[in-house]
């Protein structure tokens, strides 16, 4: 855990989806912090609850989804229970967001300049002319060539990679302290992915912006993150510094995850894989959610849910480490 006072603190977050038959728990008792300027990678399979955690932080859970318990604090102040209007002022101004698909994130009917100026004017007390200047420098900063010409172009006149750069410019337009990036590279070509990741890293470093980087791509995490949170079935499985998570994972799920990544120079014919699949939200087993697939399962795992225990340099939600690792 980093020692600096956290910029963002999530405590015991629980996100529920009430349905007609029963209430589904999509994020269950998740706690973590992000320090100023830190990049926290959040990994997990589809449906592990990582995007929902991000949406819950920026207050954009789609109904009927709702925060049922826990709290989200920004610089010590609770933001999860703020009135709609106050939360809106925080979005964009203090917490920016980047979504997965740059092709659909921009409104097709407005030029990128109009969308940038609109965002700046919403949050900052500047004149229209200043906002445009700012938009130009933002476009230059995210690496759009010839911003003076491109600013009056419409989204469809840009390629996917360029559009994601515009989305990033929009996310940082009002200089937020935190950016929630939800799968920012998933929809892009591999060659473009590297550029976008480099850009994100550079912006975070230059501006001191903290980033919550949600992805299922361990390569992106390895390259970018300072710390990593591994999620499984709506719960935090393990959290710790990126080096330790990758080289010395403790939680059996993280261990399996790391072994299933192909490595150059590895001569094995088959990739290791974790038997079975992640449980659906309707059928999460008692005890540890991972226990049916766990090679090291013992009796306690099927009975009681483990909390996060210190395990070497990381903290893992696994009974193997209940004695202090």
């Amino acid at each position: 855990m980093s020692t600096a006072a956290p910029l963002l603190e999530v405590r015991n977050l629980r996100v529920e989806f009430p349905t007609r038959r029963r209430t589904l728990v999509a994020v269950d008792d998740v706690s973590f912090g992000i320090a100023p300027g830190e990049v926290l990678g959040v990994v997990g399979e589809s449906g592990a609850g990582k995007s929902l955690t991000g949406m819950a932080i920026i207050g954009l859970l789609e109904p009927p989804g709702r925060i049922a318990a826990g709290e989200v604090r920004l610089e010590g102040r609770r933001i999860d229970n703020l009135p709609r209007e106050e939360l809106r002022r925080i979005r964009g101004r203090r917490i920016g967001a980047i979504f997965q698909d740059p092709l659909t994130s921009l409104n097709p009917l407005y030029t990128i300049g109009e969308q940038l100026v609109e965002t700046v004017l919403t949050h900052l007390p500047v004149r229209a002319a200043e906002a445009r200047e700012r938009a130009l420098s933002l476009l230059a900063e995210v690496g759009i060539p010839a911003p003076e010409q491109r600013i009056d172009h419409y989204p469809h006149q840009f390629s996917g990679g360029m559009r994601q750069r515009v989305v990033i410019a929009l996310a940082i337009a009002a200089e937020p302290q935190l950016v929630v990036a939800d799968e920012p590279t998933t929809a892009l070509d591999v060659s473009i992915q590297a550029q976008i990741i480099t850009l994100l890293k550079r912006l975070a470093r230059d501006r001191g912006t903290a980033v919550m980087l949600i992805t299922h791509d361990m390569g992106v995490i390895a390259e970018t993150a300072d710390r990593v949170a591994v999620m499984y079935a709506g719960r935090l499985a393990e959290i710790g510094p990126v080096r330790d998570i990758i080289h010395q994972p403790r939680h059996p799920y993280t261990v399996g995850l790391m072994h299933s990544i192909p490595r150059v120079g590895n001569q094995r014919d088959r990739l290791a894989q974790i038997e079975g699949s992640m449980p659906r939200l309707t059928a999460i087993p008692a005890g540890c959610a991972f226990n049916p697939r766990c090679p090291q399962r013992f009796a306690r795992c099927t009975e009681t849910r483990p909390e996060l225990f210190a395990a070497g340099a990381t903290r893992a939600a696994c009974w193997l480490f209940s004695d202090g690792g």
Partner: peptide, 22 residues
């Protein structure tokens, strides 16, 4: 339901800007 409306909300635009402008 589109992404750009969600993104407009994530940018912190006012409800009226999101509903009528976008």
């Amino acid at each position: 339901r589109t992404d750009y409306i969600k993104f407009a909300r994530a940018r912190g635009l006012t409800d009226s800007a999101v509903h009528f402008g976008h």
